[in-house]
């Protein structure tokens, strides 16, 4: 077993698609890393970008926001708004030279258990390569 650095990834999952997708990954006995700390939200658009920011500044290795595929939102258009807000947050990170790769947006439907496991695995690997979030140890943050 890999005893190396295991990141903690804050995952905010919309209850209609992505959380159900994660559930399906579990009931299908698909393996995905324990690094994913899943939280259920009513809709990805319920997540104010400041919550993603808070997770980042609190030392989360990665912050994953997942919702229904564009066009399939349970509330019809919620995830279109999510996408714009996420683009804004990412642009802020890029402008300030922060690691925007620590923020991830993903569309995972309720039937995509395998996709959830794949995203969880790949994203965990990516964050492992990046190493620990520098904000975790900053005393003057």
């Amino acid at each position: 077993m890999d005893k190396g650095f295991t990141p903690r990834i804050t995952a905010l999952l919309c209850q209609w698609c992505s959380y159900t997708g994660a559930d399906l990954a579990g009931t299908s006995r698909l393996q995905y890393p324990t690094s994913i700390i899943a939280m259920k939200v009513m809709c990805s658009s319920r997540v104010d970008p400041v919550l993603l920011l808070k997770a980042y500044l609190s030392g989360s290795g990665g912050v994953l926001l997942a919702g229904c595929h564009p066009g399939d939102c349970h509330y019809e258009v919620g995830n279109y708004h999510t996408r714009r807000r996420f683009a804004i947050l990412k642009a802020i990170f890029d402008t300030l030279g922060l690691e925007s790769a620590r923020l991830k947006l993903s569309w995972i439907s309720a039937s995509e258990g395998p996709k959830f496991a794949q995203v969880a695995n790949e994203y965990t690997d990516e964050i492992k390569k990046m190493g620990e979030n520098p904000s975790k140890k900053k005393m003057f943050l």
Binding site: Y80, R83, R84, K90
Partner: peptide, 15 residues
């Protein structure tokens, strides 16, 4: 305001 509207086809690179 950009956060009040959206286009169906945009930012496909994000997710």
């Amino acid at each position: 305001l950009p956060v009040m509207v959206y286009k169906e086809e945009e930012f496909s690179e994000l997710g």
